[in-house]
Design a protein around this nucleic acid. Sequence first.
DNA 1: TATGAATGAGCATTCATTCAT
DNA 2: AATGAATGAATGCTCATTCAT
Lengths: 190, 190, 190, 190
Amino acid sequence: MEASKTDKRSAILTAALEIFAENGFHNSPTSLIAQKAEVGTGTIYRYFESKDDLIEALHQDLEQKIHSVLLNNVPENAPIRERFIRIHANILNFLINNPFEFKFLEQYFNSPFGIEKKREKASGCDSPLALLFCEGIQQQIIKDLPEPVLFALSFGPVIFLVRDHIQGSFNLTEDIMLTTLSASWDAVKR
Amino acid sequence: MEASKTDKRSAILTAALEIFAENGFHNSPTSLIAQKAEVGTGTIYRYFESKDDLIEALHQDLEQKIHSVLLNNVPENAPIRERFIRIHANILNFLINNPFEFKFLEQYFNSPFGIEKKREKASGCDSPLALLFCEGIQQQIIKDLPEPVLFALSFGPVIFLVRDHIQGSFNLTEDIMLTTLSASWDAVKR
Amino acid sequence: MEASKTDKRSAILTAALEIFAENGFHNSPTSLIAQKAEVGTGTIYRYFESKDDLIEALHQDLEQKIHSVLLNNVPENAPIRERFIRIHANILNFLINNPFEFKFLEQYFNSPFGIEKKREKASGCDSPLALLFCEGIQQQIIKDLPEPVLFALSFGPVIFLVRDHIQGSFNLTEDIMLTTLSASWDAVKR
Amino acid sequence: MEASKTDKRSAILTAALEIFAENGFHNSPTSLIAQKAEVGTGTIYRYFESKDDLIEALHQDLEQKIHSVLLNNVPENAPIRERFIRIHANILNFLINNPFEFKFLEQYFNSPFGIEKKREKASGCDSPLALLFCEGIQQQIIKDLPEPVLFALSFGPVIFLVRDHIQGSFNLTEDIMLTTLSASWDAVKR
DNA sequence: TATGAATGAGCATTCATTCAT
DNA sequence: AATGAATGAATGCTCATTCAT
């Protein structure tokens, strides 16, 4: 009748996510995380080597979650523009509906953690988005620009909008979302 | 023949900027900042009320620096497109040539500090960029979208590119820069 | 076989009492207290919210100790004079045998802590001593003076003597003690 | 037309007295004292070797002030009782009218400073009060008790009353003052 | 396996004192 | 003589991590 092994691990992850998102990594004592997860302080260290390791694990989890959301309702044979918009809408919706996750990621990528991670990746010509860009370039539908540039053009605006929306300085409606993605498309299309 | 009164203050600011950029706010002991600035620990507190106050001052300084750079070589009567590209190029160049400043700002805007600041501003229909958008919309050259959206479309990509460049995952040449800004313009133009 | 839960708390209290008494509140680093109590610095903060809180707790403890000593061997139906002398002898003996406690209290009542406490109390017509005075006044055995005056007349000398004795400038024998309390009685009796 | 040498010294002493009385020795930065005295921080160290030295000097000043007040209106040939009451009234009035001085002394005598001083003195059979006691004992008007005991009996109540009055927990009228001193006399008289 | 009491290194901040001007 | 900017030792408190139970 006890919680299963994985239950505690994920209880810790869930608690940590929320607390990190709200307080920042450095204002989130492990003791507080343990408390919210309803486990002992020491228990965290049975599942994670250190606080840093916990943060890393959280990031991995999120990366996978996003990956799994990316291609929802993206028919392989749909036109490139449609797929482009669909993919970005997927991410945008995910982030808006999961503000803790968004805040966590923003912090993560602005910390020594994220910096490292990015350096490791670098040449990630493997993501669905990268593939889409390749395809579009070959078909001469998308501008022949380096992948990071296309990524910046299409993804940068998404992040900015989500940030504004979550901070409450701007209300992102379904309508505006689609118009924006459409404009984003104008940037990358030929 | 000694350092002038302001010298110490700016030595502290310079040292702090660099250390904050490299280690993050929370891994930057005031003692380390003092050491790098070649002043006593206590001296920091003659010029700044607290570490937070130092961070704030640094932000104010940067804000002004950026503001002063924004309109370089932007002839008032130039076409909107040209002014748009010029302004973004100014910021982009500034950030690329001042990586410490960029890293500091990234952190700042992902911390309680930046959040607060943003909330205060919010309705910033006063920046040169906002004015340019207004003008463009009136002249039916720029899409009739809310200012935050236009801002996201044009500014988001810039930030992403600078980040990549500074992290070393991508080398941003003058050429690519201009092509990117041109694509950015495609996103906001009618 | 290890120390019980309360052991550490009281080890801290004991160490703190002694160090405060000898060095004063402000010359008693928490680190020194921890060292003497043979616990880690941080441990103090598991039992007390702050150094101030520790001081407060120490005072509460002492107040109770004194209260429990006050009425030793004070038969309820003994003559008022006898009870008066007995009570004062009890306190006097307690203070002389517990010089750390005495020095602590002297400091406490000359600090913001003590001042506050006194203001809260003020109308303490509840102590055994106050009751004794009331009774004595009614029976026209004790002068009809305000309670603070009677308190000053009987308690002031006690404190002065203890101070002298503990400072070593005067040796308080059992004999002198009783003579003094008898003289003190002369001051309050009709 | 500049302040004379002594002016600065006494400005510092006056400022220090007030600040010490209000904030305690340890919450009274020398910089604050200097500010209130309208001198530079460093100037304090031209007149006093250290903060401790300043405290010591303040005490010496006060001791002398009290000494000079002690024998006001005390006719040498008046009866012992009258002189006893007069002397105590003098001190009591001085302390009540000079609360800063009182608070300073209370602190002083409960700090390492005061403790030392007392140990040095010890056998002070030289004060006017001590002489009065000697005389009274010889004339068999005052109880034959050691001087510290007589001192405690007569002086202890005075201090307690002043403390209550200054703390505001009790209003000491001229009337009560005299009644109290009269009761105090009952304690020491044969 | 899970716990949480204990630890102590680490940090922001204060302030007595010095010394160049 | 007077100043006050500069100093850095000292201190209260936090929190990641360990380990005995």
